[in-house]
Simulated assay, not measured.
Amino acid sequence: MALWTLIGLAEGSASTSWPFGTGPDGQEGVIGMPRLDHTKCATGCTACIDACPTGAIRLNAAEPVLDYGRCVVCQRCVETCPTGALSETHDWAFGTRDRDALRTARTQSVTPDSARSRRGFRRSLHIRHVDAGSCNGCESELQALNNPFYNLHRLGIFFTPSPRFADLLLVTGPVTRAMLDPLRRTWDAMPEPRWVMAYGTCAVSGGIAPDGPCLSGLEGVLPVDLYLPGCPPNPAAIIAALLMFLDRRPVQVDQGHLDGR
């Protein structure tokens, strides 16, 4: 018997019991999305708007609106806010099926959900990942899903190299023009029913590279069914988003607030 087999048997399971047990999620102390309390904003103050590199904070009828789909979690808004209206949090589970739910103020109706078509996939899901111009930050988090701690396979979720066996197309990066055709051909090769996940702020909205050779994310390129902003979203956030999409965990974010906070 190999030495590492003996060591593994002696150590026991290294996988966390989260998300269905009380074990750790591996994200203790991780800085999450900033929180906006517009009631603390000073009249005429635009410090956070001027500091944000992605335009995630904008004025809507003189009230600031924070769009987490554009946020890269740089914390510049928190650092420059003179009144404490923006504060640091540890909130990271921002996966949603509704793009508008990532904004602190709704601007349109809720996107209809297709839960009925996912009924046969709640216990098993195969994912095809396409890097559409990522900096590889998102890829480093995706790789962690298969380590012993997270052990994604125990949840019935797998990555597949072939789009013909995939149920979900997971896209990273702001979608460069060079990757547009390969991305669409991958989508066309997937069997029905099929879904798309925009993973990371770049895929959701273009991130810090919304112009030039990029297309500002998947908006208008493919029909997105699952959004997960962040730069990059951590492994626990990916798991939480996928399980939420499969109706195995409750929806946690609405109108830019996590679990009602």
Rank of each mutant, 00 (worst) to 15 (best):
L218A: 00
V224L: 04
L228V: 05
R119E: 08
P182K: 10
G173T: 07
G8H: 09
V72W: 01
C231L: 02
I238C: 14
L155H: 12
G32T: 08
T172Q: 01
A10C: 07
L86N: 03
L59C: 09
S162E: 07
F121D: 06
T111F: 14
A132R: 04
A10Q: 09
P24F: 13
I238Y: 11
P182T: 00
P232C: 02
P148Q: 12
P250V: 13
S124L: 12
T172P: 03
R177W: 05
R97W: 10
Q252Y: 10
V204W: 05
N151R: 14
H90N: 12
T160R: 06
G120R: 15
Y199R: 01
A132T: 03
C214H: 11
N234K: 07
L3M: 11
R123M: 10
T111C: 04
P148I: 12
L222R: 03
V196A: 03
P64R: 05
S216C: 10
A56F: 15
M197Q: 01
T22A: 15
R261L: 13
V72Q: 03
L168H: 00
W187H: 03
T176Y: 01
C231A: 12
P112A: 03
L152A: 06
T83F: 08
R35L: 13
S13W: 13
N60M: 15
G21N: 09
F20K: 13
V78T: 10
R116S: 12
G120A: 10
D25S: 13
A101F: 15
C48R: 06
C214R: 06
T96P: 12
H90V: 08
L228G: 09
A61G: 03
T111G: 02
G220H: 13
P182W: 04
R248T: 13
P182C: 06
G256L: 08
T201K: 03
A47E: 07
G29Y: 00
R128S: 02
A178V: 06
S134E: 07
A236F: 12
T46P: 06
V65I: 10
W187I: 02
V224C: 02
D167Y: 07
G8L: 08
V110N: 09
L36G: 09
A189V: 08
Q27L: 14
N136W: 02
A132I: 01
L222N: 00
A178R: 07
L180R: 10
R261D: 08
D188M: 09
D50M: 12
C81R: 00
T104S: 05
G200C: 00
P53I: 09
L258Q: 11
C202H: 00
H90E: 14
F158E: 13
R70S: 05
L6Q: 14
V221P: 01
M33D: 09
L152G: 04
D188G: 01
A85Q: 00
T5V: 15
V73P: 02
